[in-house]
Every structure is written in structure tokens, then in C-alpha cells.
Design a protein around this nucleic acid. Structure first.
Lengths: 114, 114
DNA sequence: GGCTATACATAGACATTCTATGGGAGCACC
DNA sequence: GGTGCTCCCATAGAATGTCTATGTATAGCC
């Protein structure tokens, strides 16, 4: 059996959403499915996490929305990245990189520092 | 100037503490300093995060404590990893690895999945 | 006496994620 | 025309964990 899906670490959801939207406008449901597919079901974004996050990002001016019809002929709120959102994405990606690097340093060490 | 220290992502503090204790028993203050030094000040563990975390880990049986005297001749609560703590460390390290890999997949992608 | 570093601790604010639940609309099938 | 499935949005409430701020105390140095 495949391993259980992981809980998201706080802060990474914003980064993931911004990143997926950098590929072009999309509605929330699609964002969640893309993340799920790309990670091989490792990251599952629940709708109760997704929609609050989208509202939050929009409120901060990093994304903006418009009602449209989806490929499946359903009403859908399509989000796109704003310029400030693009900036934010760069910043958060850099922060994520620094963070992973730092944690990795600790995990790789096999003795206390002098 | 060096970049600002990062906020911890939820869940990673436990992992970091367990890892530092895998090098041998230590008191909380030292744990915080080691993490800080190893990461080049990128990760700063505040005392208000550290001590609650230590109590949490002890309550869960992953670490255990004993009052001793520190190298500086001060009273110090020295923590050590239990067997269950060692198990937990392996589990959390593996989870962390899977998580980083998953996020990296998304960050590296430059188009939506088919 | 005053300062800094060491060492532990807690309260309260804060942000975010998860679980659970709700609704509605399109489409296929019997 | 009813049933069920996928799509799509939304919110409330609980749970968790981190941060800021504050308090205590002792050792050692000047």
C-alpha cells in the first residue's frame, strides 16, 4: 500500500498555490488536483484548507479572481497571480529554500557543534 | 547584512530537537544554541517555543529528563532520547524527507500536469 | 553593586490547518 | 424522473503549535 498522505506544514500551502497559479489562471479545485497529482498523492489539499487560503491570498492582493465557466461547464472562480503575487512567490520560494537547507544541515550533522 | 532568521514551520521543531538529542543528552538551552549555530543563525529557537516543545516531547515519552548541573555550574534539566524517541526521530525524518520531495516536485514543475 | 550569560518557565496572542458539513449544478445511466 | 458521481464553492469549529512578552534565579566578572 502507498504511504499515507502528509499534513501540510504551516506556510507551505500559500507557496504551493502561488506556484501552481504561476502556470496560468486556474480555479481552486484544479489547483488542489494538480498538487495532488504532481506529488503522487503525497500532498492532499483539503477543500477546508484550500478555500480559506485562496481568500486569504486574494485579500492580501497576491491573487485576483473572476467568475467564469470551467471546462466542465460549471461555474468556477478563476484565480490569477498579480504582480505582487509573483513577487511574493519569489520571496516565499527563496525562504523555503533557505529553510530546507537549514533543517538539512541539522539532520546531516552527527555531532554537536564545538 | 545577513538575512533575517526564519520562523519555524509547524512540526519541524520536534524533529530538530529529537535530532540534536540523538547526539547525546543535553539541556534545553544547549539544544537551542546548537540549532542556531549549525544553521548559521537561520533558525533561532526562542525559549517560548523551546520549553513548551520539550515538555510536549517528554509527555509523549520521546524524551526523558533529569536535573543535573550544567558545564557552567548551573542547575539544568538534562534531556535524553528514549527508545520510542529514537523511533519517532526516524519516522519524522522520513516524513520530512517525503514532504520536501513533494514540495520540490511542485516548485520544479513549470506547467500543469496533463 | 551592576552587568552579562546561563537556564527554566508560563501566559496570551496569533496564524493556519483539519474535520465536518452544507449547497448546487452538470451529466450519465437505468 | 430518480440515483449517483464528479465537479465546484463555502463556512464553522476544533486542534495544534509557534511567537512575544514577561518572570525568576544563579554564576561570574568588573
Amino acid at each position: 500500500m502507498s504511504p499515507a498522505p502528509l499534513d501540510l506544514l504551516q506556510g507551505t500551502l500559500d507557496l504551493l498555490i502561488l506556484k501552481t497559479l504561476s502556470w496560468g489562471p486556474a480555479h481552486g479545485y484544479a489547483v488542489a488536483r494538480w498538487i495532488q497529482q504532481l506529488t503522487g498523492e503525497v500532498l492532499l489539499v483539503g477543500e477546508g484548507s484550500l478555500y480559506p487560503a485562496l481568500h486569504r491570498l486574494e485579500e492580501r492582493g497576491w491573487i485576483e479572481s473572476e467568475w467564469r465557466l470551467s471546462e466542465h461547464n460549471r461555474r468556477a472562480k478563476v484565480y490569477s497571480l498579480t504582480n505582487r503575487g509573483r513577487q511574493q512567490l519569489r520571496a516565499e520560494a527563496a525562504t523555503w529554500g533557505r529553510f530546507v537547507e537549514a533543517v538539512t544541515k541539522v539532520l546531516r550533522a552527527n555531532a554537536q557543534p564545538a
